[in-house]
Lab assay of single mutants.
Amino acid sequence: MADQLTEEQIAEFKEAFSLFDKDGDGTITTKELGTVMRSLGQNPTEAELQDMINEVDADGNGTIDFPEFLTMMARKMKDTDSEEEIREAFRVFDKDGNGYISAAELRHVMTNLGEKLTDEEVDEMIREADIDGDGQVNYEEFVQMMTAK
Rank of each mutant, 00 (worst) to 15 (best):
A11S: 09
Q4H: 06
V109F: 13
E32P: 01
I64L: 08
E83S: 00
K116F: 03
E68I: 03
T147S: 12
L19W: 14
A58P: 15
D79P: 08
Y139P: 06
D130I: 01
Q9P: 05
E7T: 03
M73G: 15
R38V: 13
D81N: 09
E32S: 15
N98F: 10
N54T: 04
N138W: 00
K116W: 15
D51F: 15
L113G: 00
Q50V: 03
E85A: 08
R38H: 02
Q42V: 01
E46L: 08
Q9L: 13
G97Y: 00
L113V: 05
A103S: 10
I86L: 15
H108I: 13
F66T: 02
D94Q: 04
T118Y: 13
I10V: 10
F66P: 02
D3P: 08
R127N: 11
R75F: 06
Q9E: 08
T80N: 03
P67E: 07
E120M: 03
R91G: 02
D23L: 00
G24N: 05
D79G: 11
E46W: 08
F13A: 06
E84P: 04
D96T: 14
M72G: 00
I64C: 13
L40E: 02
I10G: 04
D81W: 10
K31M: 09
I86F: 08
E7H: 03
T80G: 10
E8Q: 01
S82D: 00
D130Y: 08
V92Y: 14
E115C: 06
V137L: 03
E115Y: 15
K149D: 05
K149M: 07
K14M: 06
D79T: 02
M37L: 10
A89I: 10
Y139F: 13
G62E: 14
V122P: 00
I28C: 02
E12V: 07
G99L: 01
M73R: 10
I101T: 08
T6M: 14
E120G: 12
S102R: 11
D132A: 09
D3C: 05
F69M: 00
K14C: 01
E48F: 13
G114A: 05
Q136W: 01
V109L: 00
A104N: 03
R127W: 09
S18A: 11
A89T: 07
Y100F: 08
A74E: 02
N112H: 08
E55I: 05
E46P: 15
E15P: 02
T147D: 10
L117D: 02
F142T: 07
A58F: 05
R127G: 11
M72S: 00
V122N: 00
